[in-house]
Amino acid sequence: MNTGRIFGFFAALAALVSTPAMAQREQAVELSGDVMVVKTVTEEGAEPREELVKPDLVVPGDRLVFRTNYRNTSADLVENFVVTNPLHSAVALAPDTPSSQQVSVDGGNTFGTLSELTVTEEDGTSRPAMAYDVTHLRWVLSSLEPGASGQISFYAIVR
C-alpha cells in the first residue's frame, strides 16, 4: 500500500498546485488530474451522503471519481477544446453517468452518447451499449478565454 499512498499524495499535490509555473512546455492549457474514492456515509437519522477520501485503500466494487482541472494559462483564446480520457480496463463507467456524456465503446474511434452506440458481440449480433462497455470519455468545449478554468469529472467503479 505504500506505493498507493505515494501516488495518492502526488495526485493530491498536483491537484492543489495549479499555478502558471506548472504549465508544461509552455503550452496554453494546463491539465491536472486526481482520483478519489467515493464513500457513502450513512448516519442514523440522516440522508446517506457521499464523502471523498484519498485512495489509500481500493478494492473491487469501490466507486471512484476521476477529476481533471483545466486552465488556459495563456493570453490567447483557446478554441475547439476537447478533453478525452481513456478508461482503464480495471474500472467501469458508473451507470448513473449523465446520459449526455460523450463516450466511446470502440477504443475511441467513434463517440456519441451511450444510447446512440451499439456493441457487436463475438457471434456477430448487435446490442445497445452499456456503461461497462465504455472505453473512452470525451468533453467538447467550444472555447476557453485567457485565464479561464474548470473541472471535468466522472465516476467509475472498480470492476
Partner: peptide
C-alpha cells in the same frame, strides 16, 4: 489503475495537444 486525460485545442498558429 492509471488515468491520464488528454486535451486537444486550437490556439493562434495551430493545434496543440497536452
Amino acid at each position: 489503475i492509471e488515468n491520464t486525460a488528454t486535451a486537444t485545442y486550437d490556439i493562434g498558429d495551430g493545434p496543440e495537444t497536452i
